[in-house]
């Protein structure tokens, strides 16, 4: 029976260990399916860059197996990399080369790059093509890096801190591009230490801590258990006790007709309780995944109990604390 290479995961790491004297990655399992956008999160030194370098075959693990687009990136390097786009965290600079020259050079190395699509990317990201790369700001260099990573419509895009240094409008355009990439059945693996960046575009989030995967969750699932801060002003003084008795509601503070509380998960019960009075104003802060992950990091390396309803079934092969 002939194996269909398109059925293989985009990235499949099993038991990967790369030890830099206690730093690196250890016994790492990570499986990224085709067409997914997966956010790779962790603080500096968590092992994100090491994992990306393993995927790119820049470093070779001491243990474990690595498959990228169904192939061994060491044995089949050129075939793998022809279908891979990569954005480093801070685009390197080639002497006097302009962005146009650098993009042309990389396009010739890859072959099959559609100039019209490259032009479209440059237009959407507002790339200045004719100035030397070394004179560009970090954000403008980053835009050049994004164009070169996407110009050949790769099957797998690996992005290290993709929106670093970009202004909010360009960040939104990048997020649209990444969603379009996934909609075309291509895969995006992006690393970040900023949760807000990842949650806007990712289907799933993989969290690394000290070189070990501690959680793999769907962003939607995380949002359900995420922590929100609610502030409301009513037409009369609220009954603090009634709010404190609501499930998932804590840190209730009443100040005259104003109420402030922290809600874990859905805000439905709190809103219904508020609705017993006339609500003058209501402010619900955006779900903050940071607090969830901080809770994870504060523990013993296992995911917080609230994250246990993860997607182990949807993402077979993941080994991640409570997500397993």
């Amino acid at each position: 029976m002939v194996r269909d290479p398109a059925a293989d995961p985009a990235v499949d790491l099993r038991g990967v260990t790369k030890d830099y004297g206690g730093v690196g990655v250890f016994d790492l399992d990570l499986r990224v399916e085709r067409g997914e956008v997966v956010g790779f999160l962790g603080p500096n030194g968590a092992g994100k860059s090491t994992t990306i370098r393993v995927v790119l075959d820049l470093v070779r693990p001491e243990a474990g197996t690595v498959r990228v687009l169904g192939l061994d990136p060491r044995a089949a390097g050129p075939q793998v990399r022809a279908r891979l786009g990569f954005l480093p965290s801070d685009l390197a600079v080639w002497g006097r080369a302009t962005a146009r020259q650098a993009l042309d050079h990389l396009a010739r190395l890859r072959g099959g790059v559609d100039p019209a699509w490259t032009g479209e990317l440059c237009r959407r990201l507002d790339v200045d093509l004719d100035r030397p790369l070394r004179t560009l700001s970090t954000g403008n260099r980053q835009k050049v890096g994004l164009v070169q990573a996407l110009a050949h419509r790769p099957d797998l895009v690996v992005l290290d801190e993709p929106t670093m240094g970009l202004d909010p409008l360009v960040q939104q355009e990048v997020q649209r591009l990444l969603r379009e990439t996934a909609d075309e059945g291509r895969t995006v693996l992006l690393s970040s230490h900023t949760l807000s960046e990842v949650e806007r575009v990712a289907d799933r989030v993989a969290v690394l801590r000290r070189g070990r995967l501690v959680a793999v969750e769907r962003v939607a699932a995380l949002k359900q258990v995420a922590v929100r801060r609610v502030r409301a002003e009513l037409d009369r003084e609220p009954d603090a006790g009634a709010f404190r008795r609501l499930q998932g509601v804590r840190d209730v503070v009443v100040d005259g007709r104003r109420l402030e509380a922290v809600v874990e998960g859905h805000v439905d019960a709190l809103v219904k309780e508020l609705a017993r009075s006339t609500v003058v104003s209501l402010d619900v802060e955006e779900a903050d995944l940071e607090e969830v992950f901080l809770a994870m990091y504060a523990g013993d390396g296992r995911a917080a109990a609230g994250c246990g309803g993860g997607d182990g079934a949807a993402a077979p092969g993941h080994r991640a604390g409570a997500a397993r």
Partner: peptide, 28 residues
């Protein structure tokens, strides 16, 4: 996740190894 997984073959016009070395040398 959205959209079907596409069958992915190596790009038909991927440059030959000699052409890659020539491009690298030209750039150098």
């Amino acid at each position: 996740m959205s959209g079907p997984a596409r069958t992915t073959a190596p790009p038909a016009c991927a440059p030959r190894p000699g052409a890659v070395v020539r491009e690298l040398a030209r750039w150098d």
